[in-house]
C-alpha cells in the first residue's frame, strides 16, 4: 500500500521572539525544533498548557510570524526553508568549524498559498471587524483573491457560504455585534471557507463558547470536513474536545513536542509522563470514573521559557527524571503504530 502523501510537512521548525532584558535582547524560544505532518482530510489535535507555544505553531505555519528556522512544505511546495540540513538521525549537519551547512533558502510569496490554508481564531469577539457587515467580512477574502467576475457572483457565493455554516441569509447586512458567540464563530468559519482551502488552523475555536453551543460548532467542523475534505490543525486546551474531533493528537510542553499518536492510542496508552499527568488532570464528567481515577498532580508551575531547563524541558516537574534528563534532550522516537514519544525513561 502506497503511503498517502502528506498535505503539510513541518520539520525542525523554530520560532524565537526577541525579548529585551535590560540592555540585552534574549531569544524567547516559543517553539523549539518541532516536526510533524498532516495528511489530506486529517485532523491533528494540538494540546498543551497555556504558554507552551501551540498557538505560535499555528500562526507560524500560516507565516503570520516569520519562522526563525526550519522548513514548511505544503502540498509539495516549499513555503519556507531556512537552509539547515539534517542527517537521517535528525542531527544538524555542520562543517568543521561547527557552523551549520546551509542548503537552498526558500521564502515563498504567501498570497497564492493563503487560498489553500486559512485560520479560525479563538475569540469570535475580537477577530471580526465591528465596522464591517457580515457580507463584507465573508466577502473580503473573495476580494483579495479576486475569486468572482461579477457583483452577483460575489453575493451568491457569500450567501452559499452563510448557508453552509448555518447562518440565515437575511443576516448578511448585519454587523458582528448583533450576533451571539456561536453565530460569530460561524461567521469566522465562513470567512475561512470562502477561498475553498484545503487546510484550516483552528485556534481554540470553541473555548469561548457555552457548553451547549460548543457541540453545535464541533459538529459543524466535522460535517465540513466530511463534505469538503478539509484537514485541520485543531488547537485547544480541552482534552476531551480534542480527543473527540482529532484523528491524531500532539502534546506540547514549553515549545517542544512531547508525544504524538493516534487519538485513541494516546488516551488509552499515554507514554510520556507529562501526557499521563495531563490526562489524569482532566475532570471527567462522570462521577463513577471520577471516583475511581487518581489524579497525578504535578508539582509547581511551568518554568519560564526564558529560563528553559537543560536537557528535557519537563524534567523539573517529572517524577521519573534521572541525571540523563538534565544532560541531553530526548528526541521524538517511534514506539510502533505511529506513536512517537520524546522521553529517556519510557
Amino acid at each position: 500500500m502506497a503511503e498517502e502523501k502528506n498535505l503539510l510537512e513541518v520539520s525542525h521548525l523554530k520560532q524565537y521572539f526577541p525579548v529585551s532584558q535590560g540592555f540585552h535582547k534574549v531569544p524567547l524560544k516559543a517553539v523549539d525544533d518541532i516536526s510533524f505532518a498532516i495528511k489530506p482530510g486529517e485532523t491533528l489535535g494540538l494540546v498543551g498548557e497555556s504558554g507552551c507555544g501551540k498557538t505560535t505553531v499555528g500562526r507560524t505555519l500560516l507565516r503570520l510570524y516569520e519562522p526563525t528556522a526550519g522548513k514548511i512544505t505544503f502540498d509539495g511546495n516549499v513555503l519556507f526553508d531556512s537552509g539547515e540540513q539534517y542527517d537521517a538521525n535528525g542531527e544538524l549537519i555542520v562543517d568543521e568549524k561547527g557552523r551549520p551547512v546551509l542548503g537552498k533558502k526558500v521564502n515563498a510569496d504567501m498570497l497564492p498559498y493563503r487560498k489553500q490554508m486559512q485560520m479560525v481564531f479563538q475569540d469570535p469577539y475580537s477577530s471580526l471587524n465591528p465596522r464591517m457587515t457580515v457580507e463584507d467580512i465573508i466577502g473580503e477574502p473573495l476580494d483579495t483573491h479576486k475569486l468572482y467576475s461579477s457583483k452577483g457572483e460575489r453575493r451568491d457565493r457569500i450567501l452559499e457560504l452563510m448557508e453552509t455554516v448555518g447562518l440565515n441569509a437575511e443576516h448578511a447586512m448585519r454587523y458582528a455585534h448583533e450576533f451571539s458567540g456561536g453565530q460569530r464563530q460561524r461567521i469566522g468559519i465562513a470567512r475561512a471557507l470562502a477561498v475553498n482551502p484545503k487546510f484550516i488552523v483552528c485556534d481554540e475555536p470553541v473555548s469561548a463558547l457555552d457548553v451547549s453551543i460548543q457541540a453545535q460548532v464541533i459538529n459543524m467542523f466535522e460535517e465540513l470536513q466530511e463534505k469538503l475534505g478539509l484537514a485541520y490543525l485543531f488547537i485547544a486546551h480541552d482534552l476531551l474536545v480534542v480527543h473527540h474531533i482529532s484523528d491524531r493528537i500532539a502534546v506540547m510542553y514549553l515549545g517542544h513536542m512531547m508525544e504524538i499518536a493516534d487519538a485513541d492510542e494516546l488516551n488509552d496508552h499515554p507514554m510520556h509522563p507529562y501526557t499521563l499527568s495531563l490526562l489524569s488532570a482532566v475532570p471527567i464528567p462522570d462521577p463513577e470514573t471520577a471516583r475511581r481515577s487518581k489524579r497525578i498532580v504535578l508539582e509547581g508551575d511551568v518554568p519560564s521559557p526564558l529560563k528553559m531547563p537543560s536537557g528535557c524541558p519537563f524534567r523539573t516537574r517529572c517524577r521519573y527524571a534521572t541525571e540523563q534528563c538534565s544532560i541531553a534532550r530526548p528526541q521524538l522516537t517511534d514506539r510502533g503504530n505511529g506513536h512517537f514519544v520524546a522521553c529517556w525513561n519510557r
Binding site: V211, H243, H244, I284, D286
Partner: peptide, 15 residues
C-alpha cells in the same frame, strides 16, 4: 452535548 469517554466516536447531539 459534551464529549465523554464513552461517546468519543459518536456524533455529539447539540442543544
Amino acid at each position: 452535548s459534551i464529549p465523554r469517554v464513552d461517546n468519543m466516536n459518536e456524533k455529539l447531539v447539540p442543544i
